[in-house]
């Protein structure tokens, strides 16, 4: 099976790992951090302009891939809401001893409710595991892009990227 973003619409691990947008292994241990899954050179930089801490650099030309400076990232999540590609996530690996948090942008109605148990999916939309919604952020500044945070078993924090849409 051919892999990769051009073929499947899903970035492969190789593409993700060789992109400059992922935090390194040490940073992942340390608390919430942005996880940028933007692997194609497109003319775009709202992630860079929105970050209050200068933790993302696109620079010039504007088609550069966004680079994450993990040590500067506070995990505020503003970039998750601002990215028009919905390509940024926020992960908190060591939320508890056994669970992680994954925050992702969600633009479908209805929104899930805090406390609800939801079906979490991977990058291919396939069911991975059930998780619990621990937070929903939907401020005016986000302009209708809600940020949903789910708590999932730790081993899935690199896999869970959304939830099933309700119909």
């Amino acid at each position: 099976m051919a892999k990769g973003i051009k073929k499947t619409g899903v970035p492969s691990w190789e593409e993700l790992k060789s992109s400059p947008g992922l935090p390194d292994a040490d940073r992942l241990e340390e608390g919430p951090v942005a996880f940028i899954e933007c692997v194609q050179e497109i003319p775009c930089n709202p992630c860079e302009t929105v970050c209050p801490f200068g933790a993302i650099e696109v620079g010039s030309p504007i088609t550069n891939l966004p680079k994450l400076y993990g040590e500067k990232c506070t995990g505020c999540g503003l970039c998750v809401a601002a990215c028009p590609g919905l390509a940024i996530f926020k992960v908190h690996k060591n939320y508890t001893n056994t669970t992680s948090l994954v925050e992702f942008p969600f633009e479908y109605h209805p929104l899930p409710k805090t406390g609800e148990t939801v079906r979490c999916v991977n990058r291919e939309g396939k069911f991975v595991v059930e998780g619990k919604v621990v937070k929903i952020r939907n401020s005016k500044q986000f302009d209708a892009t809600a940020l949903v945070t789910v708590e999932v078993p730790k081993k899935y924090f690199l896999e869970v990227r959304s939830i099933e849409r309700k119909r």
Binding site: G9, I42, L86, R123
Partner: peptide
């Protein structure tokens, strides 16, 4: 075509929602 024509990030959005893409 053998490859997706538009931006990967747009394709990723609909893949996460479970839409299969047949190239």
């Amino acid at each position: 075509a053998a490859e997706i024509g538009g931006y990967g990030v747009h394709a990723s959005k609909i893949r996460r929602a479970g839409v299969p893409i047949y190239t």
